[in-house]
């Protein structure tokens, strides 16, 4: 890898005072950005510049900054989490950009993810879907069975783990031309459907989660596959197919 250097960039960033305001793209110039910095560090640098210029800093979501929490979002140059695959925005590095580049930064766009401020959107729709069925009911009164006491086929365990890798970031919704949440819901349904502990509530889980998903105003999947490409955790379309199977099974029960 070539050594880090500094680049000058132009940013076109969505600014919106609050959920009611109209919002628009603002242009900012930022010089001396190290290509070794992450995209979020670059935004920190911009915010320092804005504060010095007495301009309100840009609000954006972030937490772990190591690709595990799912808080960072951002639609960068027309792609969820920017021009790289298998990463979150906090894992995106400025070496992906060239000196003189103009970079568009927009919030996730979905009716179900309303903008709260600037680049921050409200993803609580995902929480409500999860609450509608994304759990197993366990008696915690002192006689819980150790999870390892239940034998699970290696293949199923692996698939469940892979589905459970979903961090709820919402990139799938943001990148989908239909604003569909089916990759997220597919992962959450699959994670339990594959395990004996999840089988007990499987019927209601898939029906309730899909109902909640529809109520939140997410679009319908047309199998474009964009979500799978942009998902930072490599969640596969097989999970959507599994959800479709589960839903069919549950519907005819």
């Amino acid at each position: 890898m070539s050594a880090a250097k500094n680049i000058n960039i132009t940013l076109k960033i969505w600014r919106q005072k609050n959920s009611k305001a109209k919002g628009n793209l603002e242009t900012y110039k930022l010089n001396d950005v190290s290509t070794a910095s992450s995209f979020l560090e670059m935004l920190d640098q911009l915010n320092e510049q804005l504060i010095n210029d007495k301009i309100e800093p840009i609000a954006f979501d972030h937490d772990c900054r190591e690709g595990i929490c799912g808080m960072c979002s951002l639609y960068i140059n027309g792609r969820a989490h920017g021009p790289d695959t298998g990463i979150t925005t906090c894992q995106l590095h400025m070496r992906m950009f060239k000196d003189g580049d103009t970079i568009f930064v927009e919030p996730w766009r979905s009716r179900a993810f309303p903008v709260i401020k600037d680049l921050v959107v409200d993803r609580s729709a995902f929480d409500r879907i999860q609450q509608a069925g994304g759990f197993v009911s366990v008696n915690t009164s002192g006689n819980t069975i150790d999870a390892n006491a239940t034998p699970i086929a290696k293949d199923d365990a692996d698939k469940a783990f892979m589905a459970a890798a979903c961090i709820g970031c919402g990139a799938c919704v943001a990148t989908c031309k239909n604003g569909s949440a089916m990759l997220f819901v597919g992962a959450k349904v699959s994670q339990y459907a594959l395990l004996p502990q999840g089988k007990v509530e499987a019927t209601n889980r898939v029906l309730n989660m899909v109902r909640q998903m529809d109520e939140e105003g997410f679009g319908n999947c047309t199998n474009t596959g964009a979500c799978e490409v942009e998902c930072p955790k490599g969640i596969s379309l097989e999970n959507i197919a599994r959800m479709n199977r589960e839903y069919l099974k549950a519907s005819v029960k």
Partner: peptide, 16 residues
Amino acid sequence: KARPVGYAKSNPGANS
């Protein structure tokens, strides 16, 4: 309807 506000810049050819 699921996306009332669209993106100013989008690159759908990159993933579908």
